[in-house]
Every structure is written in structure tokens, then in C-alpha cells.
Design a protein around this nucleic acid. Structure first.
Lengths: 181, 181
DNA sequence: TTATAAAGTATCGACTCGAAACTATATCAG
DNA sequence: CTGATATAGTTTCGAGTCGATACTTTATAA
């Protein structure tokens, strides 16, 4: 038991951010989901990917997606290659929603730090998340380009794991298969 | 709109911590409430204090307290001086619960940082929280001893705002009236 | 070909939370 | 001193999240 009040501060901090409902048209978890769908690559934009990212059961994720679909922010398409999997995409409305600014509190929080500290802060956050995920034996996540399976080529990059070519912007996206180099 | 994925990381970090149910006998908000009651001074341990700390409506707080009372973790006493206010205290069972370790994930998260970084991290968190609270026009909170109304005396300290003497340990407690020096 | 695994969906109950209405006590203005 | 207003808290209600469980469909392995 630590005797200082670090834990209280951290818990309160987390609550302030994660209870944020933005414009309250959307629930916190929906903003998280939209954020993920906005930054994840096509292989990760599935209910399974969201399940890992949100740390919810697949049943809950299914409901989350249903809400977003009903609101017209996300579209679902069955994958022709594997008919079990559902591919998710932000609709134009979903993209507009994201662009409006998704998580006011999180954004404001960071804005209170001077720029150099902000980078340092996020770096620490990232380290903690990764440690925690590996402790929970979950998926690591990471940017495509930082993956062991990312092969940079003269005529374009490709993913060795999935054996597919990658477009330029894709190397900056989040991948749930990522295996840190 | 920031183009990096700081916001996703921060949101996810916050969610990991604040969705933590510990041993799942208690809800996240209950751990937060217990933590507050464990560290706040007697004048702050009221439904009102909790309302500010948890950033909930008073109605919700009332329910939160009811749950904790039913579980025998918190006791309620009407204040004789002002019969509108209810004083809250952790019961022995509540203290035991806290001592068992309240927020595994938050604790683990911090443990992934080397000691010196940890202090720095918490300092940044504190700065962000305070800025955010003042933006939301909420109460600032802070340690009793860091308050403008804290008067250190030879025969003991006292609070100028409330006009009461303070015991030694009280100067280290959280106060919702705190006015940073 | 059959068994098992994987990806999702549907349903149910427990729980949180905010809004609104309400009670009781305190304070303030004249 | 009295009526108006403010403050602290409770109650009730409805909307919504979420996990557990059972289920369906499609892939893969034996």
C-alpha cells in the first residue's frame, strides 16, 4: 500500500477522462470505438479488433457496434474470404463526427502540459499500457510500420504476416496483429 | 485535431484504469469513493464532498453511498450542528477493504515506471487534474497543509477558514475547501 | 465426415447514472 | 420574527452499459 495519494490522483484522472461523454450524443465507449476505427488498418477493423481494444466481451462489443451502426456512423460488411468475419468502416458521418473533436476532456488534459512534457507523458502512458496488456495476455497493438512483419520495399511496403501489399498511409495505422520489432 | 494517436492512447489508458473492478466485488466508483473517504478530512467526508470528488450528481452519489452502507463499508451520521449534513466514515470493514489493495490496475500501471519517472508522472497528472477542475469550475481539492487557511502553530495547527484546531495527521488529508497557497 | 474452434449475435439481469421532484434544515432580507 | 430562498440530501424513474450464457454460422483439423 502506497501511502501517498498517487493512486487517488491517478484514479480520479482516469475517471475524468473516461466518463467524458463529449457532446453527450455519444457514450464514452462509442468515442473510443470511433477513434479506433479511425486509426486501425483494415485487418483490425473488426468486432474482434474492437473487442481487444476496448477490453470488452464480444457480446458487449456487438451491442456497441449495433448502436454505432444504427446512428449511421459505422458500416458493416461481411468478409467474402472468411464469411465469419465482419469488416467495419467509418461512414462519412462517422468521419465527420471524429473530425468535430471526439474527446474534449482528454484533449484538454493534454493541453495543460507544455509541449515537451506532453510527448514525454504520452511515452510513459504508452509504456504502461503495453506492460499492462502483456500482463493481461492481451494483444499488443502498435503501428504497422513498427512491426516485425513490416517489410519496406522500393516498389512499396508489404506485410509479411498477412502476405499483402500495403499502401503508404497504412504503415501509420494501428494493427492488432502487430509484433513490435 | 492532433494527428498522432496520443488521444487514443490516453483514452485507452484511462479506460483500462477506470473500468477496473478490482476483485469485482465492488464497482469502480465504489473503490474511488472508499479511497476518498480514506484520505479526506472530517469536513470533506460528506455526500457533498463525494459529489465533487466523483464528479457525479448528488442523486447518484446518494445511491453510491447507499450501496456502500448496505455492504457495511461506510457509516452515516447526521451532523448535530447542521442537521442537513451527513458525515461519512469508513467502518472497520471499509478500512480492511482498502488495505487489501483497492485498484490493482492503477497500482500496476504505476509500477511499470521507474521510481523517478513515477513521481514526475504523478506531478503531471496532478497539474492536469487541477487545470481541468478549475475549467469545470469545480472544487480544487488539495492537502490540508498546502492551504492558505492552514496555520502552523507551536501548540498545534489549525484551520483559519473553519476556525478549528487540527490534529497532526489531519494536515496530510484531502480537503474539499482547500485553497492552494 | 465429423468434431472442434473461431467470429459474431441475441437475450437477460445486474448495475450505473443523470434528471426531476421532493424533504428537511439553514440563512437572509425586510 | 416571518416569509423567501438556498443548501444538503433522498427517492424514483428511465436510459444506457456490460458481462454471462446460449446460440448460429463458417472454418479448420482429425
Amino acid at each position: 500500500m502506497s501511502d501517498d495519494h498517487s493512486l487517488e490522483l491517478l484514479s480520479r484522472f482516469a475517471r475524468l477522462i473516461s466518463a467524458d461523454r463529449g457532446d453527450r450524443e455519444l457514450q464514452p465507449v462509442h468515442w473510443l470505438a470511433l477513434g479506433f476505427l479511425n486509426r486501425a488498418n483494415r485487418y483490425s477493423r473488426t468486432p474482434k479488433g474492437l473487442t481487444a481494444w476496448l477490453d470488452q466481451t464480444k457480446g458487449s462489443v456487438s451491442q456497441t457496434i449495433a448502436v454505432l451502426e444504427k446512428k449511421g456512423l459505422v458500416s458493416r460488411h461481411s468478409d467474402p474470404a472468411d464469411k465469419r468475419v465482419v469488416r467495419l468502416d467509418l461512414t462519412a458521418a462517422g468521419q465527420r463526427m471524429i473530425a468535430l473533436g471526439m474527446t474534449p476532456v482528454a484533449e484538454q488534459m493534454l493541453s495543460y502540459l507544455p509541449k515537451n512534457e506532453r510527448a514525454q507523458f504520452i511515452q510513459m502512458v504508452e509504456r504502461m499500457i503495453k506492460n499492462q496488456i502483456s500482463r493481461m495476455q492481451g494483444r499488443q497493438f502498435g503501428l504497422c510500420k513498427d512491426c516485425r512483419n513490416f517489410i519496406r520495399g522500393d516498389s512499396g511496403n508489404h506485410c509479411q504476416l498477412l502476405g499483402v501489399p500495403l499502401q503508404g498511409f497504412e504503415s501509420e495505422q494501428i494493427c492488432i496483429e502487430q509484433d513490435a520489432a
